[in-house]
Simulated scan of single mutants.
Amino acid sequence: MARNREFNEQEAIKRAMDVFWKKGYNGASMRDLTDAMQINSSSLYNSIGDKHKLFVKCIQNYTEERMKEAKAHASQAKTPLKAIVNFIQDSVNTILYSNNSCLAIKTTFEVAANDSAIQAILKSDADKTHSLLAELIIKAREQKEIDSEEDPETIADFIMNAFTGWYESYILYQNPVKIKKMAKYLITRISQ
């Protein structure tokens, strides 16, 4: 007869994700993770696997949840341009006011260059985000909210790359006014 799991795996993954957010992949020890998850190391190895497999699950979970939220939020906007503006403002709020900021960007800088599994998850997430933005930009062009001469792919690339720069800028300078000004400039450029 199979043993029942002694913990809620989804809840444990969320707790582990908090550790990775705070300490990064390299800074998080197995002890940090198992303490946060409130399980012993044998339970972790038997149910999820090693630290890397846990990290992959955390990043996968994070990117899937973030995309669900982004799509839901975009579908509630009154116009495509408003959905884009909300997306930009949500990113600013995450950078400035979230305790954990963006785990995908943090992971890209720390791990993705040397980890093909993580790189694949983050690339898929970036592709989905790019597609969502490009679709909204196309709809905004159709509704004459954005200049029809503008290339949706380039605008989507520009928006996504701005987020990474803002994240870096905020880490280095801790200047919310600077981030808000850059966001305002980006929104103005898109909606001209």
Rank of each mutant, 00 (worst) to 15 (best):
129 T>F: 05
66 R>W: 04
22 K>W: 06
84 I>S: 00
129 T>I: 08
79 T>I: 03
2 A>Y: 10
182 M>P: 00
132 L>Q: 14
166 W>P: 03
64 E>Q: 15
148 S>H: 13
143 Q>C: 04
156 A>L: 09
104 A>K: 01
70 A>E: 10
57 K>R: 14
91 S>M: 07
141 R>D: 04
73 H>Q: 12
53 K>R: 13
185 Y>K: 13
61 N>S: 13
34 T>P: 04
171 I>D: 00
77 A>I: 02
178 K>Q: 14
107 T>F: 05
35 D>L: 10
127 D>T: 11
136 L>Q: 11
112 A>Q: 08
128 K>F: 07
147 D>K: 11
23 K>M: 09
112 A>D: 02
176 P>H: 09
68 K>W: 02
104 A>N: 06
150 E>N: 11
161 N>V: 05
10 Q>A: 10
96 L>Q: 07
162 A>M: 03
88 I>Y: 01
36 A>M: 01
184 K>C: 07
50 D>T: 04
87 F>N: 10
128 K>T: 10
69 E>S: 15
167 Y>G: 01
176 P>Q: 10
117 A>P: 00
88 I>K: 01
19 V>I: 15
151 D>N: 15
54 L>N: 03
65 E>D: 07
124 S>F: 02
108 T>R: 13
62 Y>A: 05
73 H>N: 12
54 L>V: 02
170 Y>V: 05
169 S>W: 08
177 V>I: 13
29 S>F: 09
122 L>W: 05
173 Y>C: 07
100 N>L: 10
96 L>E: 07
77 A>S: 08
110 E>L: 06
132 L>Y: 12
189 R>Q: 14
27 G>W: 05
47 S>I: 06
37 M>N: 03
4 N>S: 11
64 E>R: 14
134 A>T: 11
4 N>Q: 13
179 I>S: 05
46 N>W: 07
90 D>G: 11
164 T>L: 10
141 R>N: 13
34 T>R: 07
121 I>N: 02
136 L>C: 03
116 S>E: 15
122 L>F: 07
174 Q>T: 01
82 K>A: 09
135 E>W: 05
160 M>S: 08
90 D>K: 09
15 R>L: 09
138 I>D: 06
161 N>M: 11
74 A>Y: 07
143 Q>W: 09
38 Q>L: 04
115 D>I: 13
46 N>R: 15
175 N>G: 06
34 T>Y: 06
191 S>G: 00
142 E>I: 14
59 I>V: 15
76 Q>L: 14
108 T>Q: 12
24 G>S: 09
190 I>A: 04
87 F>L: 07
129 T>V: 10
129 T>P: 00
11 E>H: 03
191 S>D: 00
87 F>A: 08
